[in-house]
Design a protein around this nucleic acid. Structure first.
Lengths: 209, 209, 209, 209
DNA sequence: GATGAATGAGGTTTCATTCAT
DNA sequence: GATGAATGAAACCTCATTCAT
């Protein structure tokens, strides 16, 4: 048992307020960064948007750099946590994969601007930070990789590299966000998902004798 | 025949030097932007890298912003011009498409960092500039779209939206550049192209009776 | 009663310091501009003279341009406020006018360099700013115009355009500032005022029957 | 006899071309400075306006500073030369003075913007240059001073300081230029001259017994 | 004589960060 | 905990001047 688990109502209240403050600043930062980019956002502007003082930003986050790291991690963690909840274990591999593609696309489409921000600003991050981001992204598509492995075992899919399929699925989802300026005007997300899924499943299907 | 075509050796020499200077600055800018990003590159730094004075940068390019536009356009124009040269007209649609996927992947892989730069900094561009970039990208994948249309006409492919396939092919190629930190360690470009091509062609193939 | 009138000692102290800072910068700017002109004054130099940082200048004034506007307005407001206090209501029009001429000359002579600065740099101001300056100058000579109107009504002056007299009085006062390099060596301000006043009053006097 | 008087047709032609070039540049410079001020005018811009190369400006004038000196001197010399031509020797002092006031006002009104430029930028000049400008201005009003001296001698004017009257006349003429933004909308130059002249002559007139 | 490409010092401005209150 | 005034390094950009052609 460590100190944190000691129930101190005073301490609990403090921790709760800290979380609220962090969220307040983080959301404002995400909003501004998505609209104007990391470099165009000034701390003064952020403080105004978040309705806190400039100094407070520095109490809750180490600096502008750490803020970027936190914003991107926050977005990617959301992705990582949502996907497993939406995968149903009781389906065939093909149906599972189709469901995973749809889920990932919808999850990412819901935070389209956050996804674009991650692409835009990841390279701005420092070495260790960037490594954490990459790690998160790899973890996000782990469920997809798992489905493919199972499909291969059951003979549902023709022989493929599960890693490559996971990558491809991720690019399908990211593609909607990255090229929304083009696709958005031509089709609905539902159409996009349906067509990409069909293409993928046909591509993966084991040849019928 | 207009005045420009009159052969003035003085003018010709001047024009040639102007081109050399522009290229000198453009290449240095592309190099620095790819290494550190647009915002991290200072004009001072660029001038040193290009071995010219700060003022000259402003004489050849209106400002830092125009320079970014020029760098990205330069990269994308290169893509647009190279692809058609590598498509063979005398093949079957499937083979043609496979060739196009390979070509595009190789072209983009050769300027991997430029591609990533375009993703990173496109949002930094001004409205009209961004529109030109998007236009260029659409033009780049036109040949792919054309191949699909012909394949559909000949019954080689199952019914699909050619626009979507063009998008998918572009994402295959961009995917290599964007996720090279992951893929590069796992497979060669050749492997990547082979596997993605197989997936795609299987996905597209008309069902045999 | 509005919120501002609520006595908040914290807020009052803050406002007082803001006023002191503004004045500190404004005075230093006026001093430097009068010595070297607007363009020759650098913000760096101003910050040193005012003993503040460069950044603070931009916090209190939007930029160099706004600073010029503020300096000139500050000078002209001073003129506008001082003149009415020195006009005595209980005198004959001629005596009132003589007093006004003397007062205006003395007021302007006391800020001779500021007056010259206003002439030098007014054209540097932006459209709306320039309009405010002109408005201020017109208001400054309103009392003179009023005296003339009353003198015309009482028959003390021969028929003249009050606007023109107001202009002439202003030019008498400004003339001392603008041509001080010549006049200053030849006569005292007192002599100048006496002689110009005599010329003006004789010029205005209604002919005796 | 010096070398310059030797009639060398080659040399004469050269000198003529030099004069034409100087004038070409000077006029363009005067035009730009009057529109935007000395500091806002760049040599590049001037070269374009004058339709010569940047380098040529430096062959005919030492630099930007010398150009300002030349422009202002050019304007003031024009004033100095025109006034004597328009004064008639065969009139009464009062009529002569009235004529001089009218002439000076008209001369200056014709180069209103040049006059304002001289006020704006004189302080920008260097010491020796400024002295020459002041000298020129004093010489300009010499004829007025002379008329007053003669009028005093003949008893036409009440005792006044001729220097002060010359100054006052100059301020009447300059006043039209400096406050044209106000006066121009209220009266014609002719009205202005008539009223100021009446005021001045009444002010100067020797009292009738 | 004439050109205009090239230079680089110097200017204005922004903004991440600190710290006294 | 919270504030926001203050700092100053560093960025972009301009433009007077030079000089090889």
């Amino acid at each position: 048992m460590n100190d944190d688990s000691v129930e101190d109502p005073r301490e609990a209240k403090r921790a709760e307020r800290v979380q609220r403050r962090r969220r307040q600043i983080l959301d404002a930062a995400a909003h501004l960064m998505q609209r104007t980019g990391y470099h165009a956002m000034s701390i003064q502007q952020l403080a105004e948007e978040a309705d806190v003082s400039v100094g407070l930003v520095y109490q809750y986050f180490g600096g502008k750099h750490d803020l970027l790291q936190a914003v991107i991690e926050d977005i990617l963690q959301d992705f990582e946590q949502q996907l497993p909840q939406r995968i149903r274990a009781d389906e065939e591999p093909a149906a599972q994969l189709a469901g995973a593609v749809r889920s990932l696309c919808e999850i990412i489409a819901a935070k389209r601007e956050g996804t674009v921000l991650a692409y835009r600003e990841s390279a701005t991050l420092s070495g260790p930070g960037l490594r954490r981001i990459k790690e998160l992204e790899l973890r996000t598509v782990q469920p997809v990789r798992q489905i493919v492995i199972e499909g291969l075992a059951s003979g549902a899919f023709r022989p493929v590299d599960p890693e490559l399929v996971a990558h491809t699925v991720l690019m399908i989802a990211h593609g909607w966000a990255l090229k929304h300026w083009n696709l958005g005007a031509r089709m609905s997300l539902d159409d996009y998902v349906r067509q990409e899924t069909e293409l993928l499943l046909n591509g993966l299907a084991a040849p019928t004798k």
